[in-house]
């Protein structure tokens, strides 16, 4: 087997072993969207009327609407969790071990991302199964079709986490990421309410939502669940992933990156 592939599989295996070992993380990853689905959606269903809009061909309940957003939320949190574990790895020294491997650095970082995506896929599918048990189901082919798009959105959000991890000096600074990245990204997106609904209250917020790459990740998942490909969302997610990945590789470059500043 190719040396690069061997390394990638080992990195995925390590991430999986870590995840399986942290049962509370799995539980938290599932409970978080379930609380939104059961509690938040129940309250919002009455307050928020949804009109028919693509990809939906009929009226849908609010629970059905927010499922793609909650899938995105799982991946967003997982991306940040991976970022947190990267900062931890840097503090603990295992990042050094990874970066002194004789394989190309970009490949090692990409392998880290893929490992994080694998973990997020487990979480998303577990969540979709539980949602189905609550009676919120989608066309069967939708469950298969979202896979490649979940991989893409996972890569994009993971790359964002990786980029952040190359700039954060200590674990303690991570709380700031929660406040300034995760929450704005989630709330100013189409995860919880459609763009037109947002535009009714604020045009500026609606514009921000429309530009937010996380909105596009959510829409990509939403359309794929009904067997459709949202090309604009796909383009934005791929382009954003490329930019974040490129910036992360620079961030971890010993000559140019932030590692140099962090070494002080």
């Amino acid at each position: 087997m190719n040396a690069a592939l061997i390394a990638m599989l080992a990195i995925i295996r390590r991430e999986m072993l870590r995840f399986v070992g942290q049962r509370s993380r799995f539980l938290a990853a599932l409970v978080r969207p379930l609380v939104w689905l059961v509690v938040f959606a129940a309250g919002f269903r009455a307050a928020l009327g949804l009109s028919i809009m693509p990809p939906y061909q009929t009226y849908i309940t609010y629970e059905v609407y927010i499922i793609p957003g909650l899938c995105g939320m799982i991946q967003l949190f997982n991306g940040m969790q991976s970022s947190l574990s990267l900062v931890y790895d840097q503090e603990m020294g295992s990042m050094r071990l990874l970066l002194t491997s004789p394989l190309p650095r970009w490949w090692l970082l990409f392998s880290k991302l893929v490992a994080g995506v694998c973990v997020s896929l487990l979480q998303v599918y577990a969540f979709l199964i539980i949602a189905a048990l609550f009676g919120i189901t989608f066309p069967v082919f939708g469950y298969f079709l979202i896979l490649p798009f979940l991989i893409l959105s996972g890569l994009m959000l993971g790359a964002l986490g990786m980029l952040l991890s190359s700039t954060i000096k200590q674990l303690e600074n991570f709380a700031g990421v929660m406040n300034f990245v995760i929450f704005p990204m989630f709330f100013m997106s189409t995860a919880l309410y459609p763009l037109w609904k947002m535009a009714e209250s604020s045009q500026i917020l609606s514009t921000i939502c429309a530009w937010n790459p996380f909105s596009h990740a959510v829409e990509l998942i939403r359309f794929a669940l009904y067997g459709q490909v949202n090309m604009i969302a796909l383009s934005v997610v791929v382009a954003t992933f490329v930019v974040f990945m490129w910036a992360s590789v620079i961030g971890y470059d010993p000559a140019r990156g932030m590692m140099r500043k962090k070494a002080r």
Binding site: I6, A10, R14, L17, M92, L97
Partner: peptide
């Protein structure tokens, strides 16, 4: 390295194999 860089919750052998794989 000066700082230990081991996965504490897996076996010695598992740690060694992880590193070997990083070397390809």
């Amino acid at each position: 390295f000066q700082q230990p860089s081991l996965d504490l919750d897996v076996s010695v052998s598992e740690n060694m194999h992880y590193f070997a794989a990083l070397q390809g």
